[in-house]
Structures are given as C-alpha cells and as structure tokens.
C-alpha cells in the first residue's frame, strides 16, 4: 500500500516538476536571448521575472479559442494534446536519481518506471510527438501549416535513424537497454576511462555523443533545424493557426521534449545521476548532479538557438542522410568490433 502511495507521489512530483521546468524554460529562453542580444529580458513579474510563465499561462487561458474555417475540428484539437502527452509520457523511464528509501524491503527508486526497455521507450513514445506536429499542420487547412508539418515529418524520420544508432552504440557497450543500469555501469569505479577520467560514455563514445546531441536538436525541432516553425518562411509553421491554450500546449510539448532529450543525453553519455569520483553518492547529491547536467544541456539548446542561423532544408536532408547516417553506422561498426574483441 505504502509502495503504491510512493509511486503515485513520484508520478505527481515528476510530472509537476517537468511541467514547471517547461514553464521556467520559456522564461529562460527569453532571458538568455536577451542577455545574448545585450538586453535584459522580462524582469517585472515577480523577483527577476520568475512569475512571468505564470502570467503568460493566465494570458493564454483568457485568449480566444479559434478554429479556422475548413479545418478538421477534432484533429485540430487533438494535435496539441498529442504533442504534449507524448513528451510528458516519455519522461516516465528517466532515472533522475538513485535510491530514495526502502519501504518494507522494496527499494523506492527515483524514476516512475524502471523498464527493461527504457532507452527504447523514450525514443518510441517521444517519437510520437511528431503526430501532433503533422496533424496540427494538416488539420489547420493552411498551406503554411501543411508545409511545416510535412517538413517536420521528413526531418524527424531522417534524424531518428541516426539517433537510434547512437543510442545503440551505448547499448551495445552497456549490454542493457535499462537506463538505470546504463547509469550504474558508468558510475562503477572499474569503468574509469584511462584509469582517471570518470567512466562516462562520452569518453568511450565521443562521436556518438556529438551526433546524438545534434540529432536531439533536429528531433525537438529546435534551431538550427526548426523547419517545422521556420518563422521567416512559414509564418509559424504547424502552429500558425493555433491560439490560446492549444498554442501553449504545443509549447509545453516542445519544451518538455527538450528537457527529456537533455535527460537522455545526460543519462546515456554523462553518467546520469552519478557523481564523478564518488561512487554511490547520497540521493540528494546525485539528484543535484543530474539536474545540473540537464540544466547545462537546456542552456545549450537556448545558446545554440540564439547563436546560429537556420539551415536550408536541402542542407538539413543532406546532413542527415549523407553525413550523420554513415558516421553513425561506422561508429556502431567500430563499437561492435571493440565489444567483441
């Protein structure tokens, strides 16, 4: 009974934290863009503007709900929900921290579900978020939206391949798909790289790490690969026709996907909740280390967005199919060789 209660508590806390983190990310996006552009950014609502996302949310709720003429009503409403739900669901297997406590001999771990197929789950469920984009783009009955949806589709399929191959390299090394075990393997002292570096996969798989990080940018439709939105060509891409809370849901979905992808990068390549040179660190310190690493990758998302220009669409496709896929394949071949030797 208490175990069930603990699980429910974990679900509530993790989902709540994820959605709040998405809200805070929107504020961070605006503040970081302001700093990079020599501005100050929103700092009026609450101390340092921390209540700005709340104000935005209230504003979104009171905006007019609008369904364009000729739109497919049900799909138009379903799309943002799908987009947000997929991103929220994929967080379920991320191990945020180690052992919290034990109840009646049952260990309570800091992740909602400890699936054997964790790595696959994130890719499978996270990949469904694309349906929100496609359906939203198609159901809007607008050519800009349709173009955004189509571009997002082709882009997602192209980059998902390379991304899965990068994950596969890590999985082949760790011999498991369970994310917690992947983290524990990186934590153990005898996995140290060259004897002194922490046993993180980034040192064993530098190529896969770089490819994976770039693929996460393409997967979450972020700059410099944001062809689904592409303000300068497609007005707003798939969410051109959206308003009010439906628009906000798309954004929650986007930021949640970014957070989940950052979590995946940290878990797969940067030792997750482990602390370098401190095996089996206490729960809170492990959690803090995890959040710190995720924050860095979230910052990277924002930093890159406000630094780099957008690619051209054919460049994106060339990069995906002619550079990333061969590199990922070579990487997995080399990994296979190294593992079998």
């Amino acid at each position: 009974m208490t175990v069930l209660l603990a699980t429910i508590l974990k679900v509530v806390v993790i989902f709540g934290a994820l959605i709040s983190a998405a809200g805070i990310s929107t504020l961070a996006e605006r503040r970081v863009s302001a700093w990079i552009q020599h501005r100050i950014g929103p700092n009026r609502v609450g101390p340092f503007g921390v209540l700005q996302p709340l104000a935005d949310g209230i504003k979104f709720i009171f905006k007019e709900e609008f369904v364009p003429e000729g739109a497919n009503r049900w799909l138009f409403i379903l799309a943002p929900a799908l987009s947000a739900a997929a991103a929220l669901m994929s967080v379920a297997v991320i191990p945020f921290g180690g052992l919290i406590t034990e109840i009646d001999g049952t260990p309570i771990l800091m992740s909602i579900a400890d699936l054997d197929i964790g790595a696959l789950w994130v890719v499978a469920i996270g990949g469904l978020g694309i349906y929100g984009v496609i359906l939203g783009g198609w159901a809007s009955n607008s050519k800009y939206s349709l173009f955004g949806g189509l571009r997002a589709t082709a882009q997602m399929i192209s980059y998902e391949l390379s991304m899965i191959l990068c994950i596969l390299a890590v999985v082949a090394m760790s011999d498991t798909l369970n994310l917690r075990e992947i983290v524990n393997l990186q934590d153990s002292a005898d996995s140290r790289c060259f004897g002194f570096l922490p046993g993180w996969n980034i040192f064993y798989q530098p190529l896969a790490f770089v490819l994976f990080v770039i693929c996460t940018f393409a997967e979450t439709n972020r700059h410099p690969f944001d062809f689904a939105e592409c303000e300068s060509e497609l007005v707003g891409g798939f969410h051109t026709e959206y308003s009010s809370m439906k628009f906000a849901l798309f954004f929650i979905g986007e930021y949640c996907a970014m957070i989940v992808m950052s979590c995946m990068t940290v878990t797969l390549f940067l030792g997750g909740f482990s602390v370098p040179y401190w095996s089996e660190a206490p729960f809170l310190i492990g959690l803090a280390s995890f959040l710190l690493k995720v924050t860095f990758f979230m910052f990277l998302f924002l930093w890159v967005r406000w630094s780099l220009p957008r690619f051209r669409y054919d460049q994106l496709m060339n990069l995906g199919w002619k550079v990333f896929l061969p590199l990922a394949l070579v990487n997995i071949l080399l990994t296979g060789l190294a593992v079998s030797l």
């Binding site: 694309i130 349906y131 198609w138 399929i157």
Partner: peptide, 8 residues
C-alpha cells in the same frame, strides 16, 4: 513512430 508517419 515511423511507418504510420510515412503513411500520413
């Protein structure tokens, strides 16, 4: 994630 997206 892949086949049905292609169909769509």
């Amino acid at each position: 994630g892949a086949i049905m997206v292609l169909f769509l």
